[in-house]
Design a protein around this nucleic acid. Structure first.
Lengths: 267, 267
DNA sequence: TCGTGATTGATTGTATATGATCATTTCGTA
DNA sequence: TACGAAATGATCATATACAATCAATCACGA
């Protein structure tokens, strides 16, 4: 393999993974360790990559790869500051090395960005969430088996003998269509089905619901309040809307929408 | 061969591969090393290619946008013409509306591009293949449950109660590490495990193996020849290497990779 | 047929790249 | 803090790529 080929491949790999180890490159390039180190040094001198102990790192953060089947192109962009604030608060609930479950949805999708430098066991039924986690973090990711539903962007099996059965998550993070004194409500039967499966695999349910969800109703109740441990919402909620939850013994977290997030949303 | 012919060929090859080594050109053009160097120098002076140590490079690097968690960037770029030819031949075996299974790997990844306008039921354990299918086709995609293994880029569950159990594929398309009279060989235990699961879910096994695989051996046999229906390889295989397969009653397809033809077609 | 200039292939010496080895540094951890 | 493991840098013998030279070959016209 030509020197130039190796350089190109190293750059590509670094670009792709944002960090590669010398060991990885050793397998991949079939060159000796000394050569790989020399390559890394050369590229680093040219400023094309950053030299780090044990490997190489991308200079610029990482251009967002074109995420496959990006979700919800529509709802993706609405209420971003609220969603980010809620996601940040949710991420703070997660302890190092914990096993968690993330249900698909735009609110929970926002959670991913705060899990970049974590080391967690994550089960998610959302293909985009898995893809983004795969691309931007080193967490261990598990998927349930099943068919990918394009509209909802989730993986769901119509059968019972599911790989999910072998997973136990300490906490389940989920969004919702609506949230009120009856519990978590959803509008799409498929999502109900997927969510129900996940609910069985955890003890603590954390609902991430911006305040607009508190005024929305639907026909299908996925879980009653007694099933919910924590609700994270934003500061747009009225006290009387939150009252039933605290009455049910649910821990309430109100995430402050900070200016930084608002600016980011506008950018 | 005339100077002009060589120059055209070199330009075309550089265009296609973005990098060619002097050694490659030596085989391909049948000219001496000195001549090839002179050619490269001439073309480089005209600015038609870039001179690099050991070969030549395209002036404008062909930059392909990459999807999430793209595989194995390296082997991705190896033996591309062979893989494409094999993939094209494999795609021709698939009938409309069929249920197929695609095992992960770089050779099978190449298959995806030929499935863009199909309407199939596809089960794959490869996350990148699923991602690309999701993004570029309308096929129904099913994934087995399990953890995503980054290095191999496959989804694999350590458990038996797998969603795969509910899928039946008419044909299984798989690559391999090596292929010989003992059968399909793999080097990575994880891949063995994943492949074994898929083998149970189909009747017809189609092995996509470029001719270099026929000379490679490994310690682990995934399936014997009696399990294989069809083998697709490229025209770099020697007759005596293929003999055991036809003797075993396996259908052999040799996909033509003729670079000179490709060149002339574009000239 | 011969001669001429251009092209080509082989040879050689030099420069550069590579891989193995080993001493040194760094890191994580007991 | 001290230890062992891993990563690193330096060194050297070898392999490979390169440019220059020269002889052989080819194309072409007289």
């Amino acid at each position: 393999m030509l020197e130039r080929e190796r350089h190109n491949l190293i750059l590509k790999l670094v670009e792709e993974r944002s960090i590669v180890s010398v060991a990885d490159l050793l397998d991949l390039l079939g060159a000796s360790e000394a050569t790989i180190r020399r390559d890394i040094n050369t590229l680093a001198e040219r400023g094309e990559i950053k030299r780090i102990r044990g490997g190489a790192e991308a200079v610029r953060p990482r251009h967002q790869p074109h995420l496959v089947g990006m979700p919800f192109a529509l709802s993706q962009d609405i209420d971003v500051p609220q969603k980010r604030a809620i996601a940040r608060a949710a991420a703070e609930l997660i302890e190092p090395g914990e096993s968690i479950i993330i249900n698909g949805g735009t609110t929970t999708f926002a959670l991913v960005e705060f899990l970049a430098d974590r080391d967690l066991d994550i089960l998610t039924n959302s293909f985009p969430i898995a893809a983004k986690l795969l691309a931007t973090s080193r967490n261990r990711i598990t998927l349930p088996g099943g068919t990918i539903f394009r509209e909802q962007n989730i993986v769901l099996s119509p059968f019972e003998n599911d790989t999910v059965e072998n997973f136990w998550g300490n906490k389940l993070f989920t969004g919702c269509y609506g949230l009120n004194r009856f519990g978590i409500m959803e509008a799409d039967p498929l999502i109900v089905q997927a969510q129900t499966k996940l609910l069985k695999r955890t003890e603590h349910v954390v609902v991430m619901a911006d305040s607009s969800k508190l005024r929305r109703k639907s026909a299908m109740i996925v879980a009653g309040l007694e099933r919910i441990s924590t609700i994270i919402t934003d500061d747009g909620a009225r006290p009387e809307e939150l009252e039933p939850f605290s009455a049910a013994g649910i821990k309430l977290i109100v995430a402050k929408v900070n200016e930084e997030d608002e600016l980011k949303a506008l950018a």
